[in-house]
Design a protein around this nucleic acid. Structure first.
Lengths: 181, 181, 181, 181
DNA sequence: AATGAATGAGGATTCATTCAT
DNA sequence: CATGAATGAATCCTCATTCAT
């Protein structure tokens, strides 16, 4: 009532809460009530700012995908030789899911949504395309593609495995897939 | 004398229904009601045969993992040389998600559950270990590991991509990661 | 918890509450919450016993239509001559909406629903057919039809008008429409 | 100097939207949001131009009643003899609900509102009085009254019946109720 | 052994209305 | 004058689970 009546960061705060909830409870655990509580906004606020749960999830995950691409880009930015690019990619695999597995989980949830529902699939495809394009700055198209798949595959392994592969094993895989001889 | 004095296939039928539901609606879409309706059993039957939703999901997914491992094994069974093994693995990647993406979805859902909740993680780890063991019959441990990750990574790509890599591209990736020279 | 666990009159009580609510607040005013409160049953009970609001309304109104037909029949039962039948019909018009206009309102609400949604239309048509059949026991088909329409038309007039037509006016109209000469 | 310094047709457009909504969704389906969307005006506009939902409905239905009376009048205008008047009334019954049942529905909705809430009742009574007055130009008061009721009763029959009475049947009923001999 | 009945919690969403701008 | 932002109440419905039978 006495608040500024227009808090421009409200949408933003809600989206952050959504991402936190996806990571903690899964996409299925994202409800209006829970999100509102977490973001500290009234329940009615949710459907005012977002059409429905789907818009909520989609927008939050889009923001997250952008963030991941940015990380990706930052990692690869400095590399000028193939050797440096390979090292950068290796670092990437070991960087992303370092936190509290939050990133891994978010990616997994997105894949799961994408496997079944169109808008999420589109987001996923767009994302894959962008990261492949980044790899293609340093590797030929076919190699970029293989490398992209490898990165994707190493991630769940690193996250679930009790005894995950160490950095040198990752590097070895990267070298082989990119055909370093 | 025989215990299950009613339809012994009831559990089985319920588990099949659960798997169908996971594939169609996602793990979050599996409810007692829906499962009962789909399996054609009374609602009260659900909590009689299964402790709760988790037991339901876990048992269904365990059965599915067994099935996938069996497919895996069948594919690799005939291979006697590394060359044949590589060809078998290639066939595997192109076999699994060929159907109506059902398999991809189920795997994805399992990963998502595994990322957050213990019993699912254990199932997942056990599964990964078994498939790696199968690969180790034909490849050295480190190679098996890399190969396993690659397979995992190729799957979502093949499923989501509008223009998925063809068989020869897969074979090329397999050759490189297994160090065929 | 300590209740008989199976109250067979519960459905019945709910339907009575629905009819009361339609009369008092209109069909649009029938909500699960209000109905539950009025019938003295828990909210969750509503969707257990009835699929949804529509089943609720439809079943309640079907019961009401049956009741009205029964009244109709009882009124006409004793008539053996056309003269007696005309008198009975006249009595009918002046009997039905005598109460607290409850009957009139219920009929009106049913018509309104019937004008837009199929299952209600079917109920309405079925009802009209039955009452016409009753009239046809005493009048030729065409006459029965005209008479039926007249009855329908007199009802809202009697209910809304500040100065509604008296019994002799009704009788006069009945006589004319049935061609008493 | 001119007051409505913005679009003066806005009120008008809103009222048209309200009528459309009543016809399509029922009076209960008229909300500020839906009306605003349909009329293409901002949501805030609704409560600026109209006190609340009731004012909205009442004003829209008043306009509609005026329209119906005008049709009524136009139909009867040319008639100079009782015979012509009877033919005109017959035409009326077969004209009104000819379109997409829109008119029938609107009338029904108005009756339903009138049965329960005062301002709508007043509107209804006023309307009935006006149409009766029109009939009284051609028929004696008692006959006008009977005829009015008959018209009212024929309408739902014609609208709901699968096999509605044809024009000659209507004419026959009109003749009888007006005592043509 | 098996199940229909029951229910309180929580799901998404729509709403009329208020108010600062 | 006109309106976008905001919100708490209420909407229908689904749910996992308990329990008497």
């Amino acid at each position: 009532m006495a608040t500024g009546h227009t808090d421009p960061r409200r949408r933003e705060r809600i989206l952050t809460a959504v991402l936190d909830l996806i990571a903690e409870e899964g996409a299925a655990g994202v409800s209006h009530r829970r999100t509102a509580a977490r973001a500290g906004v009234p329940l009615g606020s949710m459907t005012y700012h977002f059409t429905g749960i789907d818009e909520l999830l989609l927008e939050a995950l889009t923001g997250y995908a952008d963030h991941v691409v940015a990380v990706f880009e930052r990692h690869l930015a400095g590399a000028t030789t193939p050797e440096e690019a390979r090292e950068a990619v290796t670092g990437l695999v070991h960087t992303l899911p370092e936190g509290p597995r939050r990133d891994l989980i978010l990616v997994q949830e997105l894949y799961t949504l994408a496997a079944r529902r169109e808008p999420y699939r589109a987001l996923c495809v767009h994302w894959m395309r962008r990261s492949r394009a980044l790899l293609e700055r340093h590797f030929p198209p076919d190699t970029a593609r293989r490398l992209d798949a490898l990165i994707e595959g190493l991630t769940p392994h690193r996250a679930l495995d009790d005894d995950p592969p160490d950095r040198s094993a990752t590097r070895e895989a990267v070298d082989r897939i990119t055909g370093a001889d």
